[in-house]
């Protein structure tokens, strides 16, 4: 293995991890705060990616597409929470099954509207091409993705650890009843987390649509990776989502380049090992 190969795989892994982190952290936040395993999160990623694609195609502006995707994702997630989940509050099983139903509807709707041909969202021209890093030349877009992923991670950390709002969320993860007893409207906090998760999923939908493409089944692929990430890292923990995303990104990059037929399988190896020895995840608490 040459050093340039290693650097290449490192960067590939990082760019995938950046994408995974944006989806998985939203999933994990919703789970941690509300104990809702929102299985429609992958479908949210896919449909906002497709909406972004349509807007990018018709306006020619990547940023407009990104904005449209985020708005659509936020509206959809508010609909999911206020239109459906509110009727099955505190019934975990029903909540999960409800989001499964919504995920099927959304995913099949995408297939009906946008068809089954895998499509890439066109990357804006300044980001096309590669950048010379000395050892290797690497696509600019992927480098930007790594930067975005890192800044999202820092921003989320600052939000959760350094703001009043973040303190309320963390308190809500530990004891929602006590938070509402202190006079804080926990429902608004829940809604805020749903909106935050939707913004992340919408951004990831467009960025991922330009990296991996949009295709039927892309929703369950990304959902599955989110599951692996949160099971490995620990459900409801931001650090866990970060660690899990990095692990999943590197394994996917290395697996794809070395054992393409079993790449999917390799992604699960850490999950199996961690479940066997640390069922609460690497960073998770019981």
């Amino acid at each position: 293995m040459s050093p340039s190969f290693l650097v290449l795989q490192l960067l590939n892994g990082l760019s995938l991890a950046a994408l995974y982190f944006m989806v998985a952290s939203g999933f994990s936040l919703i789970f941690g705060l509300m104990r809702v395993a929102n299985l429609s999160h992958g479908a949210l990623y896919l449909i906002s990616g497709y909406i972004g694609l349509t807007v990018v195609r018709s306006t020619g502006s990547f940023l407009l597409g990104l904005g449209a995707a985020v708005i659509a994702a936020v509206l959809l997630n508010i609909l999911i929470k206020e239109g459906f989940l509110r009727f099955v509050r505190s019934r975990e099983l029903s909540q999960v099954l409800l989001t499964i139903g919504l995920a099927f509807i959304t995913g099949d709707l995408c297939l009906a509207i946008w068809g089954g041909v895998p499509t890439l969202i066109p990357i804006p021209s300044p980001l096309q091409g590669a950048m010379n890093l000395g050892l290797i030349a690497y696509p600019r877009y992927r480098l930007l993705l790594i930067l975005i992923g890192a800044s999202v991670a820092v921003a989320l950390w600052l939000l959760l650890e350094r703001t009043r709002w973040g303190a309320v969320i963390r308190a809500g993860v530990d004891d929602p009843e006590m938070v509402s007893a202190l006079g804080i409207d926990i429902e608004r906090v829940f809604l805020g987390v749903f909106v935050l998760a939707a913004i992340l999923a919408g951004v990831a939908g467009v960025l991922g649509g330009a990296l991996l493409g949009l295709y039927p089944g892309g929703d369950s692929d990304i959902l599955l990776i989110s599951l692996v990430v949160v099971i490995v890292g620990g459900l409801g923990s931001l650090q866990g989502a970060l660690v899990g995303s990095l692990l999943a990104g590197f394994l996917e990059a290395i697996g794809k380049s070395m054992l393409p037929e079993l790449a999917y399988f390799i992604l699960f190896a850490p999950m199996v090992i961690i479940l066997a020895f640390r069922p609460q995840g690497l960073v998770g608490r019981r």
Binding site: F84, L97, L98, I100, G101, L102, A103, F104, I105, T106, G107, D108, L109, A112
Partner: peptide, 10 residues
């Protein structure tokens, strides 16, 4: 069918 099944689920 998946839309129908999803609706049934809900």
């Amino acid at each position: 069918w998946l839309i129908v099944m999803g609706t049934l689920f809900v």
